[in-house]
């Protein structure tokens, strides 16, 4: 059985990535590994799921019918490194990520996680954008 890895954050782009990942793993009959990571360097990280939100996600994924594993590595590394590590470990056939819009200045300051993922990860990558905001 193959593996599909998805990087998940509780935002529209993370949601879009997750939806596509569920579809892909169903189509490929693959194990879905949901990676929700945090550098863990701040007291608050709203993109890191805990408590009620984590429970809700697990329930929703369980209901989706695909085989799912949720991982939450906190090793002080950034998303690109964590995802690359999981992809390598699970020998994944596909990685799904959500893309965010960044201004030129923002990219200069923060770098682009997506770009580093594209360079670091050695498997096919599906990059998904958040659906445009409806009227």
């Amino acid at each position: 059985m193959g593996t599909v890895v998805v990087g998940y954050v509780p935002t529209p782009r993370g949601r879009a990535a997750l939806d596509h990942a569920v579809l892909e793993s169903r189509r490929r009959d693959a194990l879905l590994v949901v990676v929700n990571t945090s550098r863990g360097d701040a007291l608050v990280d709203e993109e890191f799921l805990q408590g009620e939100a984590l429970r809700a996600l697990s329930q929703e994924l369980a209901a989706s019918g695909v085989a799912v594993e949720v991982r939450q590595p906190v090793h002080g590394r950034d998303v690109a490194e964590e995802l690359a590590a999981v992809v390598e470990e699970t020998d994944a056939e596909l990685l799904v990520i959500g893309l965010r819009k960044r201004s030129a200045v923002g990219k200069l300051l923060m770098g682009s996680a997506a770009q580093r993922i594209l360079l670091d990860v050695d498997c096919p990558i599906l990059a998904v954008k958040a659906p445009p905001r409806g009227p």
Partner: peptide, 8 residues
């Protein structure tokens, strides 16, 4: 400490 705490 590493890792965030849960925010309600």
């Amino acid at each position: 400490r590493r890792g965030p705490v849960e925010v309600m």
